[in-house]
């Protein structure tokens, strides 16, 4: 027993040292809290890190809080930041309706909030986003255009996320008007931690079942497309055999589009980094420079443009598309 007590004490001491060294301790004058829905999602993390970097350049103290895809945790993170009396809060990929209680607590504390790709809330100044409907339409039309509006396609869907769901629905609308293009196989990804395995298995089956019978593939987001790309390459497909279109963009996406072995044809680039950066810049202008919100952003949304990227405009390694 005594041994264990000593062990416990040692663990406690280790813990203390550990979190003291990782404490930023809010030394600066301006504190920014960033609430992220799921840091495990690449797009969320990219947005948050771009915002963090921009804020640090302004000399702000930044705390990123992850909510691990748990709605209640978003609420408690917001409440805790309100209690910490931070100067401003940025919400990344939030869920304003579900987390209304947390947002209300923040707005009651008088803390200004901007959100990114979340949807609107009366408690938040505005939401910086891209128009998902437009993004979905661009991807769908690009795919159909490449197929000359005829042929068979496979789709990899994801219905548990609002953005990817909209993309899927817009694809359906486009297909409803263009009956010469048929979906001959579709797999819907389940919302689990092992979603990559789910996509791999589901698509592997579809690819085998429909071998040689399809000309296009639509994936609801890039990380799905990467998995399908790897499957196709393993089966010996060559660039140009099949048109594959997806959405999100990023360095890995650009690399694959440039890569002569990859089957990924194009992706709609959503400027996550730019949105994170813009959110911090606008926050600075409104809170520190006294600019009026209405003069900077009209309405509840600030829409940024998404950009269709294919081999003709994919940026070189390490660079970003010129918007």
């Amino acid at each position: 027993m005594k041994c264990k007590k000593i062990g416990l004490a040692r663990t406690a001491a280790l813990m203390a040292v550990f979190f003291l060294t990782t404490t930023q301790a809010f030394a600066g004058d301006f504190k920014l809290g960033i609430v992220v829905t799921a840091m495990s999602s690449e797009t969320h993390a990219r947005t948050a890190h771009a915002a963090e970097e921009t804020a640090r350049k302004l000399g702000w103290d930044v705390t990123i809080l992850d909510s691990q895809a748990n709605v209640q945790k978003i609420v408690s993170n917001l409440e805790n930041l309100a209690q910490a009396k931070v100067n401003a809060i940025l919400v990344c990929m939030g869920k304003p309706v579900e987390t209304e209680a947390g947002l209300a607590a923040v707005s009651k504390a008088g803390t200004p909030m901007i959100s990114v790709m979340s949807g609107t809330s009366p408690h938040v100044m505005f939401d910086i986003t891209v128009n998902e409907y437009e993004v979905g339409a661009e991807a769908a039309l690009y795919l159909l255009g490449q197929l000359n509006y005829q042929g068979h396609i496979l789709t990899q869907r994801y219905e548990s996320h609002v953005g990817t769901r909209i993309r899927g629905k817009i694809l359906d609308v486009v297909l409803a008007e263009n009956l010469a293009v048929k979906v001959i196989g579709s797999h819907t990804m389940a919302k689990t931690k092992s979603w990559r395995e789910d996509v791999r298995k589901g698509m592997e089956a579809l690819l085998l079942q429909n071998q040689g019978k399809f000309q296009g593939i639509w994936a609801s987001f890039d990380a799905q497309a990467f998995i399908i790309d790897d499957l196709l390459q393993a089966q010996g497909h060559k660039k140009g055999d099949i048109v594959m279109v997806s959405i999100d963009g990023g360095q890995e996406t650009f690399r694959r589009i440039r890569d002569p072995n990859s089957l990924l044809t194009a992706s709609v680039f959503i400027p996550f980094e730019a949105m994170g950066k813009k959110a911090v810049e606008l926050m600075d202008q409104i809170v520190n420079k006294g600019d009026k919100k209405e003069e900077l952003v009209t309405g509840p949304y600030l829409f940024l443009d998404a950009l269709m990227i294919d081999k003709y405009n994919a940026p070189p390694e390490g660079e970003w598309p010129k918007m």
Partner: peptide, 28 residues
């Protein structure tokens, strides 16, 4: 969890500490 947030500690620290708590508790 609350105290760490008020102190501005990085988010992943909470998870690491939670794991340590579990190990320490179960060892007892």
């Amino acid at each position: 969890s609350n105290g760490l947030i008020l102190m501005g500690v990085e988010y992943y620290v909470q998870d690491i500490i939670l794991g340590m708590i579990i190990i320490a508790s179960v060892s007892v």
